[in-house]
Amino acid sequence: MTPYHVTRDIAAPPETVWSILTDANRLSDGSFSIIRIDGRIAAGQSFKLWSTVDPKRAFPIKVAVMQPAQRMEWHGGMPLGLFLGNRQFSLTPIGTGTRFDMRETYSGPLKGLITRFIPDLQPSFETFANALKAAAEDTP
């Protein structure tokens, strides 16, 4: 299985994109394929996320890496590393704008079994990137 991946060039500085990317209330406004986030998106913090992909299921996530206006990683999965999901966000300055990149990869001994049951996340990745671009470019 190839990782899910999306890239967008956004006509806004990395700091603007970052402020949206780390705002749990903004991300759960309905336009990002996220229904709800309980908790804060901050370094070392854990939170729960509900997505339109599986609205009845809460995904426990830990913010494992946070370099403001540059990079962030969310980790989730099963105990003992049996299955791990890693979502990486990166922001790269390009001129006066930002290249946004988001990818998700999986690992662990149960990866082959579990990934067969994961629905296609690419549409939600596209929705997320489009919403981030629209929100950042609409921010004064």
Rank of each mutant, 00 (worst) to 15 (best):
Ser90Gly: 08
Asp9Phe: 07
Asn86Arg: 10
Gly76Asn: 10
Pro14Thr: 00
Pro60Ile: 03
Met72Gly: 02
Thr127Gly: 08
Thr127His: 05
Ile114Asp: 11
Asp54Met: 03
Gln122Tyr: 12
Gln67His: 14
Ser51Pro: 13
Pro60Asn: 04
Val17Gln: 07
Ile94Met: 00
Asn130Arg: 12
Gly95Trp: 15
Ile118His: 07
Ser28Ile: 03
Ile118Arg: 03
Pro14Cys: 04
Gly108Tyr: 12
Phe89His: 07
Thr98Trp: 09
Ala69Trp: 02
Pro123Thr: 11
Ser28Glu: 00
Phe59Leu: 10
Leu113Ala: 12
Gly108Thr: 09
Gln88Glu: 01
Asp120Arg: 07
Ile41Tyr: 02
Ile94Tyr: 02
Ala136Thr: 07
Trp18Gln: 03
Gln45Val: 11
Lys62Trp: 00
Leu82Ile: 15
Met66Asn: 04
Phe117Lys: 15
Ile41Trp: 01
Glu104Leu: 09
Pro55Glu: 06
Met66Ser: 08
Thr92Val: 12
Gly97Asp: 06
Lys111Ser: 12
Ile34Val: 14
Ala58Glu: 01
Arg99Ser: 08
Leu27Gly: 04
Thr2Asp: 08
Ser31Asn: 14
Pro14Ser: 01
Leu110Cys: 08
Glu73Gln: 14
Gly77Asp: 02
Ile34Leu: 06
Pro140Cys: 04
Pro3Phe: 05
Gln122His: 12
Asp9Tyr: 12
Pro3Asp: 14
Phe83Asn: 02
Thr139Met: 03
Ile118Ser: 02
Arg71Glu: 14
His5Met: 11
Thr52Ser: 14
Ala136Val: 04
Glu126Asn: 10
His75Trp: 11
Thr2Gln: 13
Val6Tyr: 05
Val6Ser: 08
Pro79Glu: 02
Thr22Cys: 09
Ile114Met: 15
Pro68Asp: 12
Thr96Arg: 13
Pro13Asn: 00
Gly30Leu: 02
Ile94Trp: 08
Gly30Lys: 01
Pro119Ile: 00
Ile37Gly: 05
Thr98Pro: 05
Trp50Lys: 09
Gly95Glu: 14
Val6Asp: 12
Phe83Ser: 07
Ile10Phe: 03
Gln67Asn: 13
Ala58Leu: 05
Thr16Ala: 04
Pro68Ala: 15
Phe125Gly: 04
